[in-house]
Nucleic acid binder design. Structure first.
Length: 191
DNA sequence: TGGCAGATTTTA
DNA sequence: AAAATCTGCCAA
């Protein structure tokens, strides 16, 4: 069970977002271990990307984005949900990969309980959904993925095709193609 | 199956 | 006022 090493997250952020597809996201939470294969990601590219939270400088909310690669950036959105990002690049450069969807693997009963639903395809098919299913909140903001209880394993799905599209739910720099997902996968958020 | 309104709260 | 979202409701 090998974790992705620090060097993985220091690659170009678009490359990190692409290479995270298929890898296994794991959270050893209070209700036990939950995990799943990452099937959809988006890249957010620092000061020049107007959709990136860090583009206009550091704030209380986005400060974890400015930490070094391999950290976790969790923020609350629309007052109700949380979104999970993995920070890339050296400290001071606010780039990260948003984890948008996961194919459930372990802890499916915990996910169903957290989400109050039974349909497996609807458990983690969106950034807010997967945080709710995994039990990820602001408490995990700033955590290391290279150590600790929230991490990504090298192991996972292989031999799939990737699709690239524009990002979801943004208005600024909406024309950039920085969303990536596994072709044909049934657990992504949107076609 | 797809589009739309409403929930809800932090942030700038 | 807007936001890196989700759900339920409605129509076709």
């Amino acid at each position: 069970m090998n974790r992705l090493p620090l060097e993985f997250y220091l690659q170009k952020t678009e490359i990190v977002a692409q290479k995270l597809l298929g890898k296994t996201l794991v959270f050893e939470g209070p209700d036990g271990l939950v995990s799943g294969y990452i099937v959809e990601t988006e890249a957010y590219l620092g000061f020049d990307d107007q959709a990136c939270h860090g583009a206009r400088g550091m704030t209380q909310r986005n400060k974890s984005m400015f930490l070094e690669a391999g950290r976790v950036y969790v923020y609350q959105i629309y007052g109700m949900y949380y979104c999970l990002n993995l920070v890339t690049q050296i400290a001071g450069i606010p780039e990260a990969v948003l984890i948008r969807a996961v194919e459930p693997l372990n802890g499916i009963e915990v996910m169903k309980k957290n989400r109050h639903i039974n349909k497996e395809k609807n458990l983690c098919s969106g950034p807010g959904k997967l945080c709710q299913a995994f039990g990820i909140t602001k408490e995990q903001d700033g955590w290391f993925t290279t150590k600790g209880m929230l991490y990504v394993l090298i192991d996972g799905l292989q031999n799939f095709d990737m699709v690239t599209t524009t990002r979801i739910g943004i208005t600024k720099d909406a024309d950039l193609s920085l969303r990536y997902y596994i072709k044909g996968n049934q657990y992504i958020s949107k076609k």
